[in-house]
C-alpha cells in the first residue's frame, strides 16, 4: 500500500499542468475517510483493516461486519495476508482505523498489562472443523497459565490428536486475541509460533509478570 507522492507526478506536459497535478495529501486522506463511511453505510464494505504497533511488532487487524476475523504478525507479510483475504473472503477491503478502534485499544491495554481477557466480537469463519474446536477451547486457558498440546487435545475430546492441535495453533487466524501462545510442548519447550519464538516468549513473560 505504498502511495506515490501525490504532490508530484511527471506528466511530461510542462509546468502549466503542475497547476492541475498539485494535490494536498490531507485532502486525499479526507476523501478516503469519507469513502470508508459511505461504503460502510451502504453495506458494500466487506472487510476493514488497520495496523497497530506493539512490543511484538506491527500487527495487522482485519474485521468483517461480524467482528475481528484476522490478526497477523509482520512476519506473515501484511500485504500477502490482505491479498489472501481478498481471494477467500472478499476484495471489498478498505483501511478503516475507526472501525477497529476498540480492538486497538484492548490490545494496547493487554500489552500494558492492564487487560487479561479480550472482549471483542470475533468472526471465526477462517477456522473450520477440528481446528475451530481447538481455537474455541484456547480462551479457556487462563491468562498467565499454559497447557500442553496433549492437554488441549484431551480437552477437546481427542487425546490422540496432539499434532493436529499443533497445526491448529500454528494456523490460528487470531493470534494474541485467541491465546495459542499459552500452548506449549509437553516437555515445556515453547513449540512453534506464527509470530516467531521471541514473540511467544514475550507474551508468556508479559502474562507471568502481571
Amino acid at each position: 500500500m505504498t502511495a506515490e507522492n501525490p504532490a508530484a507526478q511527471d506528466t511530461g506536459a510542462g509546468p502549466e499542468l503542475d497547476l492541475l497535478t498539485r494535490l494536498d495529501p490531507e485532502q486525499l486522506e479526507r476523501l478516503h475517510h469519507r469513502l470508508e463511511q459511505e461504503a460502510a453505510a451502504t453495506g458494500i464494505l466487506d472487510l476493514v483493516f488497520t495496523t497497530t504497533d506493539t512490543p511484538v511488532g506491527t500487527l495487522l487487524l482485519v474485521a468483517t461486519e461480524q467482528g475481528l476475523v484476522r490478526v497477523a504478525f509482520a512476519s506473515e507479510h501484511h500485504e500477502h495476508v490482505l491479498a489472501g483475504l481478498a481471494e477467500t473472503v472478499s476484495p471489498r477491503i478498505l483501511r478503516s482505523p475507526v472501525r477497529l478502534e476498540s480492538a486497538v485499544r484492548q490490545l494496547d491495554e493487554y500489552f500494558a498489562g492492564r487487560r487479561r481477557v479480550f472482549d471483542l466480537p470475533l468472526d471465526r469463519r477462517l477456522s473450520k472443523g477440528f481446528r475451530a474446536e481447538v481455537l474455541h477451547h484456547l480462551p479457556a486457558i487462563p491468562y498467565g497459565r499454559t497447557e500442553s498440546y496433549a492437554q488441549v487435545a484431551a480437552a477437546v475430546g481427542n487425546p490422540k490428536a496432539v499434532r493436529a492441535v499443533g497445526s491448529a495453533c500454528a494456523t490460528n487466524p487470531l493470534p494474541v486475541v485467541v491465546p495459542c501462545h499459552r500452548v506449549l510442548r509437553s516437555d515445556g519447550a515453547f513449540g512453534g509460533y506464527l509470530g516467531g519464538p521471541e514473540a511467544k516468549a514475550y507474551l508468556l513473560g508479559l502474562e507471568s509478570a502481571a
Binding site: 502511495a3 501525490p6 507526478q9 469513502l35 491479498a83 476484495p91 477491503i93 478498505l94
Partner: peptide, 15 residues
C-alpha cells in the same frame, strides 16, 4: 484488495 486501488489510483482520479 480494493484499498490498493484507492492508494495507487486515488490521486490520478482526483486530478
Amino acid at each position: 484488495p480494493f484499498e490498493q486501488l484507492v492508494a495507487d489510483h486515488g490521486p490520478t482520479v482526483l486530478r
